[in-house]
Design a protein around this nucleic acid. Structure first.
Lengths: 105, 105
DNA sequence: CCGATTATTCGCCAATTCTAGAAGGATAGG
DNA sequence: CCTATCCTTCTAGAATTGGCGAATAATCGG
């Protein structure tokens, strides 16, 4: 992953509201969750939520699939895995300080 | 790690300049690197650099130790490890999709 | 104490972000 | 076609962020 892509994804997750959205979607698992249900769960105005969801989609951390009138959001696990791998690689470059994490990379 | 702390750290890393600063410090290893050397490496005005370094220090991702007139910066590996652990935990909650990463947590 | 070196803080501006109400587009049922 | 539902886009204002020159602080050698 390029450093600018990593930065963009970190920035997307670096907002408490968006991080909560993402976490909720991860916990929803493969089934995903419609925007409307995210809204009742997180108590966020629709326009604000849509704004944040769009930001997460634009960096590839989540995706959306339409089902009738509802838009179901899914966490994109591969993207997150790539991001974690990037952090682990940065964290452990040259010096082997993050041994536990390194075994994962 | 609390979700707001994680968000603050992700936000700190979510700026290309700051991510480069952090990466440079990680690669400098335990010896760390003075602010001045970061400046020549990254070609950033001193005031801008100091601004970003302060942001990274404030969330605990790096620390500074004075040595005479120079301030040596060090990556705080434990903080990064905690952040990666948080992401892995979020990423793999409920569904076991991030198996490689999970083995690290 | 003085000057040199190193880094931070101040002040300012442009640009972006966050938030959210209001309006608009997409889809389905009747 | 009309209406309801669901979500996005538009619009706008407050707040924050990023960037950087200039001024200020901290430290050391002499």
């Amino acid at each position: 992953m390029k450093i600018d892509d990593a930065a963009a994804r970190l920035e997307a997750l670096g907002n408490p509201t968006r991080l909560k959205i993402y976490r909720t979607l991860v916990r929803a698992g493969r089934a995903g969750m419609p925007v409307g249900r995210l809204q009742e769960r997180l108590k966020i105005p629709a326009s604000t939520l849509s704004h944040h969801v769009k930001a997460l989609v634009s960096v590839g951390l989540i995706s959306q699939v339409r089902e009738g009138t509802t838009l179901v959001c899914h966490a994109e696990y591969d993207t997150m895995r790539g991001l974690v791998d990037f952090l682990v690689a940065e964290c452990c470059a040259e010096e082997k300080q993050c041994k536990e994490a390194q075994t994962a990379a």
